[in-house]
Structure formats: C-alpha cells, structure tokens
Amino acid sequence: MSALSLGRAQLVAVSAAIAALGGGAVLVALTIPPDAAGAVVGARSFPVAVGLVLLSCGLLLLLEAWRTPWECEATDPEAPPLDLVPLAILAAGMLVNVLLIKAAGFIVASTLMFAFTARAFGARRLWLSLLIGFVLAFATYYGFARMLDLRIGGGLIEDLF
C-alpha cells in the first residue's frame, strides 16, 4: 500500500498548503487599513472572511486527508506514476515563449512553443511541428492579430511585412 501512503502524504501537503494560503490571506488582510471615508463596511472585512474560509477548508481537508484520503489520481493505486518528462518539455516550451515573445515576437516564440508542446505529446518529426506551428502562428498573426488590431507587438517576422 505504498501508493496509498504516498498519495496520502501528497493530500496532507496540499491541504496544509490551502490552510497556509488561508492563514496568510488573513494576516495580509489585517494589514489593509480600515476606510477613512466613513464607510459602514470597509475594505478589510471581506478579505478576512475569505481568508478564514480558506483556512478552515484547509484544516478540515487536512483532517480528511489524514483519516480517509479522498479518491483522486494521486491516491488511485491503479493510476500510473506521475510522468514528468512531457511536463518538463511543456514547461520548457512555455518558458521559451515567455522569454522570447517580447524580443523575437509572437510568431517566433509561439512557433517554438508549439514545437515543444507537440514533442511533449509525442510528435516525432520536429520539422513538421515547426512548420505547422509556424503556419498557424503566421496565420493567426496576420489573420487575427493584425486584423483585430490586437496589441501583440512586433517581432523578427512581424516587422518584415
């Protein structure tokens, strides 16, 4: 039953994180100054309430995770272990997009992200994904972004035409 205990540990961690988020929210909310303008209910009340809701949810979930972990992928003994390789490839693609979109422009950055994503989902032919990604990004840029006057900015290819 190691899968279950590992799953339980994850659920405990998640519940604790929610409780911590709620607690943190309450602490931050308490630093919001009460209104000066004499409003009956100020800017502080709702944030504190929301923080308390999250905090109590987190604590109750902690209890549940400890006693009877709920069913989900992480606790399902049948479920395969977490496959990190495609996730890492996807994350790399997103990172490339974030880093390049301002400097190299939408078409270049998004074509690369498309290729990374396709690779993460098992596409073998890199040239094909690059080609499809480029055509899609190009068509989106000129078909939509330019036409709708979106503020997607210029770039290496965008500035050519």
């Binding site: 000129y142 709708l148 006057d149 979106l150 035409f161």
Partner: peptide
Amino acid sequence: AATAGLAAATAGLGLPAAAKPFGSVS
C-alpha cells in the same frame, strides 16, 4: 473594446505598423 477602420481591416494588413504617425491610436 477596440475600434479600427474597415479599411485597415481589409486593405491595410500588409502595412507596417508605423508607416504614418497616427495610423492607429489606442
């Protein structure tokens, strides 16, 4: 919301963004 000339939508696709100073204003 955004507004842009129909002319821009149909004819101006290939024009560089900064051809004229106030082709497009936000």
